[in-house]
Design a protein around this nucleic acid. Sequence first.
DNA 1: TAGATTGTTAATCGATTAACAATC
DNA 2: TAGATTGTTAATCGATTAACAATC
Lengths: 205, 205
Amino acid sequence: MDKIIPDIVIGRLPVYLRALQNMAAEGRQVTSSQELGERLGISAAQIRKDLSQFGEFGKQGTGYNIDYLSNQLKEILKVDRVWDVAIVGAGDIGSALASYSGFSQRGFRIRMMFDKNPEIIGTMQGNFEVRDINGLQQTLEEENIRVAMIAVPSSQAQAVADLMVQAGVRAILNYAPVNITVPAEVRVQHIDPSVHLQRMTYYMD
Amino acid sequence: MDKIIPDIVIGRLPVYLRALQNMAAEGRQVTSSQELGERLGISAAQIRKDLSQFGEFGKQGTGYNIDYLSNQLKEILKVDRVWDVAIVGAGDIGSALASYSGFSQRGFRIRMMFDKNPEIIGTMQGNFEVRDINGLQQTLEEENIRVAMIAVPSSQAQAVADLMVQAGVRAILNYAPVNITVPAEVRVQHIDPSVHLQRMTYYMD
DNA sequence: TAGATTGTTAATCGATTAACAATC
DNA sequence: TAGATTGTTAATCGATTAACAATC
């Protein structure tokens, strides 16, 4: 039986990976837990401990090979492959996501987009023709989509999530400013700029 | 000397507030730590413990008055006022943020927008005329902006952050997929959809 | 070799939960 | 009153850090 890794550790791995990829883009070859920690505001000990949950990726005296560690992290996070992603909601947020170029190098490819507004169904948003949300469940199943994003108004977010789950989606990134609940086998992450901002204003004088 | 509240507690308060406001919008008057916890996937004990750091907001036997608790949380989080916000970067993400209607009820008002591209400086994005980023520091100072969002390419994010900090900004929401470092008196939050997605793919089979 | 840095252990620190008296 | 739910304490659980032998 596999050791269970704390989710809080899993949550840091993508941050490590991003930093490593940015270092690689700067032409760097090796780094250390100390340098990485300074960049991220995380202790070197914590980075080493986190990584040690999965194996030994470094070398005493020299540190970590950036490409090698990146590849290991990609495997661990299962982004050594490409996940097809559906976007539901073709408003400003959905459209910005559809044309966001940052996904392709990180393991994701936007494949389709849905909306319920008849006026925009059939129009192009970025490279995608907006589909009718009435076909959501069938299309997700047919195309075997397991990752999706919600960019609809709050009032419809839970209903959309329910459809997604029924269709086999197992990872949902929710941009609607409302909590959605899903079965235990499905993961949800919420992105709400107001929540992030409010977390900072607390500290302001 | 004030007791120091753990940041992880502060991080949950905006989530509680959002849930309470959504409940209020549904016409609800009272709730309990148990109900709130079920909605959020958080234990009732934790909610009560978190709130008890700041005072006694409930009533035995009946629970919490939603409006009252909302107002208390707004005060605690300092969103019982309106914070003027600047957006730097008028691409897809910046534009989506500029026209996002969700800020006004949560304590924030977008006030201005900057970009460095001469072709879009002077054009309208939502209700804002895009300003020249060369005037960033002066304008932020003049208008006393203390909250800002970064929606520029990764390569420019740190430089923009540095300018913001110099101009007196104390809370930065960064949409560029790169870690930025700031002095201890400044708060940063990162929003990176790939990071959130990668945190979920780990669990997929 | 000497210096640097890993992986890991044990100690510390902090967060969460369970339980319950108080009380609405 | 009886039932429900808070606020809080103490116990448990989990995460972080410090330290260092191993070793590149």
